[in-house]
Simulated scan of single mutants.
Amino acid sequence: MTELWNWRIDGAAPVEVYPALAEALGRVVMPLAVADPVRLPAYAVVCDVWEAPGVYGTMIDCYGVPERLRELPSIAALAKLLERNCLMRDDTLDAGRHLLVAPDGTIRPVHFDVVETDEGEVLSDQRLCTVAHPGCRGWSQCHRSQWGPDSVAPALAAA
């Protein structure tokens, strides 16, 4: 079985993302636009990288990721290589809640305002997920996550 990963990066050009992805994953990375399923090496990961409006506007979709590759260490390696913050969806159903992975490997939950556009979701107004904010207190979805409000963890320890 294979996985699908959806990530965002804070301001990285697609041309610099592909080689960093290959290094972070330890695999050949094939851009979706040129990937030929007949000639695709068994160890390759197909990825699509594009620019969207808003903060964290560099979007990454990785298709067919082998399940033995772990997502948190992989995105942490990418953040470190690019020296940029990265985002991934968290384990709640809140469209505005993500995990922020910093270049130093720190992971923490954050919230954004989300607006749907013709070009996809646009994120704005980043804030930490903390019990100091009324939306993260009490019975919020934040408390149902393994990444509760105010949680901070290193990527490799959290994976």
Rank of each mutant, 00 (worst) to 15 (best):
V45W: 00
V15T: 15
T92S: 15
I9Q: 05
L72T: 03
M59L: 15
D94E: 15
Y63G: 08
I107P: 00
V131Y: 12
R27F: 04
E119F: 03
A13R: 13
V131I: 04
M59E: 15
C142R: 09
G11V: 01
D36Y: 12
P103A: 09
T92I: 12
L81C: 14
E16W: 12
E83W: 08
G11N: 08
L82N: 09
S140L: 07
H143S: 14
R137L: 13
T2W: 15
S140E: 11
R144S: 15
R97A: 10
V65G: 06
M30K: 11
C86F: 06
R8W: 08
E121Y: 09
L128M: 04
D150G: 14
C142H: 11
E119I: 00
H133I: 06
G57P: 11
R144I: 00
I60L: 05
R68H: 05
E121Q: 07
L82C: 09
E119M: 01
M1D: 13
L72D: 10
A22T: 03
A52R: 13
A52I: 00
W139V: 02
G57A: 14
P73N: 05
G120L: 06
L100Q: 14
I107Q: 00
F112W: 10
D10P: 10
R137F: 12
E71L: 09
R127S: 09
R70N: 13
D94H: 15
V49Y: 08
W7S: 08
D125I: 00
E119G: 03
V45M: 13
L72Y: 09
Y56D: 01
L81W: 11
H133M: 14
M30D: 05
V34C: 02
C47G: 07
V45I: 12
A158D: 03
C86K: 05
R27G: 09
T106M: 04
R97W: 06
D113F: 01
A35D: 08
T106K: 07
A20Y: 11
V15N: 15
L99R: 07
C62R: 07
V65Y: 07
N6W: 10
I60H: 03
L72C: 06
E51Q: 12
P53T: 05
E119R: 11
A20S: 12
I107T: 00
R84P: 14
P19N: 13
V122D: 08
A22C: 10
T117N: 03
C86I: 04
D61H: 09
P14S: 11
D61Q: 06
P37D: 04
Y18T: 13
D104E: 14
P103V: 11
E83G: 14
E3F: 00
G11K: 07
V49W: 04
L81G: 15
H143W: 15
E16D: 15
D91N: 10
P14Y: 05
E51N: 09
V38W: 09
V131F: 12
A159Q: 13
V34G: 06
A157C: 05
A35W: 01
A159M: 11
